[in-house]
């Protein structure tokens, strides 16, 4: 009985965070560019959804994943976290990577241009989010060296994550080349549910302290 529910939860998670985004990606009927470029594009999109999933794997009670063991959840959270943080740290490099295999602006010139252009909202927001992901990664990796209480660290981590997904979603919706209206709505829905859930948990904590 519990197993079935676990399975259906897993299936639901896959559907929400992988299935639908991929479906919207396909429905966009974007022109084929190259295997490398399109794979990177899809991977980036799914990595973004994995970040949303992180909110549900953060051990907050009252989520659909409550039935899993806390320890298991946190272990998955950490694992996904480090992989996705690493992925997004490489995000600017992935954008210029195909330039190694085709004619045009040299990859190093493209990268410099990309990191030093501050002309559009989406780009600036993206660069701030880029800095935040380093912060998130570093504060998680060196949590024990920070000398913070777990509770305050958790709050810092949560607030940074909130800010991060807000900026990252903005950046993705504004700049993403495989973002259509359906994808936009789904991102907004998933991102706001995730944020709302986290904020709810804070409120519950507030109430408990009172």
């Amino acid at each position: 009985m519990q197993n079935t529910s676990k399975h259906s939860t897993l299936f639901g998670v896959l559907f929400i965070f992988m299935g639908l985004p991929t479906l919207f990606w396909f429905l966009g009927e974007y022109p084929f560019r190259s295997f490398l470029k399109d794979s990177l594009g899809l991977a980036t999109l799914l990595a973004l959804y994995l970040l949303y999933l992180q909110f549900f794997l953060s051990g907050i009670p009252k989520t659909p994943l409550e039935s899993y063991r806390f320890k298991t959840i946190i272990r998955i959270h950490k694992y996904i976290g480090y992989v996705v943080v690493l992925f997004f740290m490489l995000h600017p490099f992935f954008i210029v990577l195909p330039r190694f295999f085709e004619a045009g602006l040299l990859p190093q010139d493209a990268l410099i241009k990309l990191l030093t252009t501050f002309e559009t909202q989406g780009e600036i927001v993206g660069l701030i989010a880029y800095l935040l992901i380093f912060f998130l990664g570093a504060t998680s990796l060196f949590r024990h060296k920070l000398g913070m209480k777990y509770r305050s660290w958790k709050l810092l981590h949560g607030i940074t994550s909130l800010l991060f997904i807000f900026l990252a979603s903005w950046h993705a919706i504004d700049m993403g080349r495989h973002i259509n209206d359906a994808q936009t709505l789904w991102i907004v829905l998933v991102a706001s549910t995730a944020s709302w859930m986290l904020l709810q948990s804070y409120r519950r904590e507030d109430e408990r302290i009172k």
């Binding site: 979603s169 903005w170 504004d174 209206d181 936009t184 709505l185 991102i187 907004v188 706001s192 944020s195």
Partner: peptide, 15 residues
């Protein structure tokens, strides 16, 4: 949170 979502939605649809 809600203000943020609203901003997101506006930005997205105006893209």
């Amino acid at each position: 949170g809600i203000a943020g979502v609203a901003t997101l939605a506006t930005v997205g649809l105006n893209g």
